[in-house]
Write a protein that binds this DNA or RNA. Structure first.
Length: 572
DNA sequence: GCTATGGATAGCCTAGCATCCCAATGCTA
């Protein structure tokens, strides 16, 4: 789909325009980008069906932007974008990825030091060329170096959320080849890790050559790293690599087990095989020369005396022992979810009306949707104050009546995502909080507090009797910002004591809590809420990423409050 | 640049925070 490519260009144009202090246009391009990014239909199809007119029906797309889209679909280029890029030939992605570096600084860095990319930036910072620049100082230089170090640690990995849709598309294309009898994802992708290094596919075929030929000639293949009889490796236009391996049917299970990993899990399973006088490799489980298992993964584990281990658990973090004892958890599934408790409407910075959000939730099959708009401290997100919350409450009551009249068994809940201020208080008065169905509290400012202060700040907010959910509890942004410093064990104890659920934020850039912290919470008996933090109705679909994460953290249905019906949500 | 409405023009985009330099700017949510 060209949707993502076009959205990306418009996001870049927005940045270029804001560098030049141009008013309003950046927001216009950003808005168009967001809507194109979230468009369910292929934008090429939209154009084919209805021409430019149909493009202009996309919200935020007017005549000019429609022209750009048309130009891109016809020529693969947008001249306007090229002009902007020529004027400031820098790697926006790389530079913007560094926290503390934004559009204006990028311009200064280019004009004064000809810094085009991360490499230039790092060199300049190390040579202390930056601290002497106007509007920069020693601290900015230090922050830039720290930012680069952080970026490097997470470099070369892709967010599950950005890669999975592309992988599904490629998988569908491969499935069209009749020589492919079975195809499966493998590797960290199948284990649903939050970031993915490269994509692994495993296929069963009697004609591997044909499969390999087809694979390396897929339209989005940029470069073929290797191509052999049973394995090929390519670089895709999206920047990520895909490995494809062909195996025979009788070894499919063992190959899948082997290529799914993790490495640590595999080392452990192979040791178990040795202890039982067996040998486990990618071709099967062998007793001497006799193959005793290999066709199915279940068979592999059975041969080792284990029950099947879900891919998300295969990290050698206790799943092997639990499997032997028959104590593996029955993991939460997407179908268990009855509603989403964290999303934003156009009352704050969100894109869609409350009703549009609700209708999307109904379509998914939810029983309820909690609208949790930002509150007043977050001015940029047009956070609501007490009066606006009251007004919104009346609107929600009306909408609930409307939906009831349409015979839906569905309820919109009144929530709010309040801000935990530096002193641990919440930015909305209790009297107003009391009128809501539930309250979320989250940290949205002053991330660099000391560990002790931050922990106290959070725990104080949890003590507020109206706060039911602590949102994105560690504050990290994948590949961009580390967690803030806080004592998570203390927070867990407080969550338990003050009956606050911790959020598993499903937004692909957040996935916060992470797997390890989810497991800690589950073990501590702290309840969790898997929420999308959707700012657009289509983002309610992010729920699956929260589910993956929760599964990696050993969470069961009972651990998650929004698997319950609405009346029992907050009995913690 | 888009949307809404008076159909050519207004309105949209804010505030806290860190840093840099001691008032202003840029970044971030």
């Amino acid at each position: 789909m060209k949707n993502q490519e076009i959205a990306k260009i418009f996001y870049d144009i927005a940045i270029f325009l804001s560098i030049d202090n141009i008013a309003f246009k950046p927001q216009a391009y950003e808005k168009a980008a967001l809507n194109i990014e979230n468009l369910e239909e292929n934008i090429e199809d939209v154009y084919k069906k209805g021409g430019k007119k149909a493009l202009e029906d996309i919200p935020g797309v007017g005549k000019n932007i429609a022209d750009c889209i048309e130009e891109y679909l016809k020529t693969g280029k947008i001249k306007y974008y090229k002009q902007l890029k020529n004027k400031l030939p820098v790697e926006l992605d790389e530079l913007m990825a560094i926290e503390g570096v934004g559009p204006k600084k990028i311009k200064v860095l280019y004009q004064k030091l000809r810094i085009k990319n991360l490499k230039d930036l790092e060199e300049a910072a190390k040579k202390h060329k930056i601290s002497s620049l106007f509007s920069f100082g020693e601290k900015s230089e230090k922050n830039i170096l720290e930012g680069i170090a952080f970026f490097k640690r997470s470099k070369g990995r892709f967010l599950l959320g950005e890669i999975l849709p592309k992988v599904k598309e490629i998988e569908e294309k491969l499935k069209t080849l009749k020589e492919i009898e079975i195809i499966s994802q493998a590797g960290s992708l199948r284990r649903k890790k939050e970031t993915i290094g490269d994509v692994d596919f495993l296929v069963v075929t009697k004609n591997p050559k044909k499969v390999m030929d087809f694979f390396v000639s897929l339209p989005d293949v940029d470069k073929v790293w290797a191509k052999g009889a049973t394995k090929a490796s390519v670089k895709m236009s999206g920047g990520f690599d895909i490995d494809l391996r062909a195996v025979s049917e009788k070894s499919y299970g063992s190959a899948l087990q082997y290529f799914t990993g993790s490495k640590e899990h595999n080392i452990a399973t192979r040791k178990i095989a040795i202890n039982k006088g067996l040998k486990l490799n990618e071709y099967g489980v062998f007793k001497g020369k006799r193959m005793v298992a290999g066709w199915s993964e279940e068979g592999i584990y059975r041969a080792l005396g284990m029950s099947f281990v879900e891919p998300e658990l295969r990290e050698n973090r206790g799943e092997i022992e639990a499997s032997f004892k028959g104590k593996l958890p029955k993991l939460i599934e997407l179908d268990d979810i009855k509603g989403d408790l964290h999303c934003h409407s156009n009352w704050d910075g969100g894109e869609n009306s409350i009703l549009e959000m609700a209708r999307s939730a109904i379509e998914i099959g939810y029983e309820y949707l909690g609208i949790s708009d930002h509150t007043k401290f977050l001015r940029i997100e047009r956070g609501l104050d007490e009066k606006q919350l009251e007004k919104r409450g009346k609107e929600i009551e009306k909408l609930n009546l409307k939906l009831e009249n349409e015979n839906y068994k569905f309820k919109i809940l009144q929530g709010a995502e309040t801000n935990i201020l530096n002193d641990g208080s919440v930015d909305i008065k209790n009297k107003a909080l009391a009128k809501l169905d539930y309250v979320i509290a989250g940290v949205h400012s002053s991330f660099k507090m000391s560990r002790i202060k931050m922990t106290e700040r959070i725990i104080k907010a949890m003590k507020n009797p109206y706060v039911k959910i602590f949102s994105h509890p560690t504050g990290r942004i994948l590949k961009k910002r580390d967690e803030y410093q806080a004592d998570f064990d203390k927070i867990l104890r407080a969550a338990k004591e003050f009956k606050v659920a911790l959020e598993v934020n499903a937004y692909p850039e957040r996935l916060d809590l992470n797997d390890i912290n989810i497991k800690k919470a589950v073990e501590a008996g702290v309840k969790l809420a898997i929420n999308t933090d959707a700012h657009h109705k289509d983002q309610l679909r992010f729920m699956e990423f929260g589910i993956f994460q929760a599964r990696r953290g050993w969470a069961k249905k009972q651990d998650i409050i929004n698997t319950r019906s609405q009346e029992n949500l907050f009995i913690l």
